[in-house]
């Protein structure tokens, strides 16, 4: 069961790191990346739960189906969030990626 343990703990750590980044960082893309890392962590724990070493019986297929579902959901939500964040950027006058007014970035570019 050591394998399950290792990957469960890894998944939990991924969840924690993602959570911290999601709250602390303010850039929209970073937040979305953090959510993705979090969800990968959750999936990892779930798959690790189902894991049975080779030759010791079948792997539980229900968590696999759940994770497949979850991956597709997370991709679609990621896409929506990305488009939404682009729109937020386009209507805001702060450069969300670099945390300064849009005008400054534009000046930097024209230089």
């Amino acid at each position: 069961m050591i394998t399950t343990q290792i990957y469960s703990i890894t998944g939990l750590l991924l969840f924690g790191m993602g959570l911290f980044t999601l709250i602390v960082h303010s850039h929209p893309l970073r937040k979305i990346l953090a959510v993705n890392v979090m969800s990968t962590g959750v999936f990892l724990i779930l798959i690790a739960t189902a894991y049975t070493p080779l030759g010791q019986g079948e792997v539980d297929p229900v968590p696999h189906a759940m994770v497949l579902t979850g991956i597709v959901v997370s991709v679609s939500v990621t896409a929506l969030a990305l488009i939404l964040s682009c729109r937020v950027q386009e209507t805001s006058n702060r450069d969300l990626l670099r945390e300064k007014p849009v005008a400054e970035t534009a000046k930097e570019c024209t230089r």
Binding site: L29, I32, F43, I47, Y51, V67, L68, V75, Q89
Partner: peptide, 28 residues
């Protein structure tokens, strides 16, 4: 031992999420 998930992750996680992020970054 989750080949289904592996296939989906390889195609979605790397093949699609990456380009999605890159195009969003470029659009911004």
């Amino acid at each position: 031992r989750a080949p289904d998930v592996a296939l989906a992750e390889a195609a979605l996680g790397a093949g699609l999420t990456g380009p999605l992020f890159l195009s969003a970054l470029r659009r911004m």
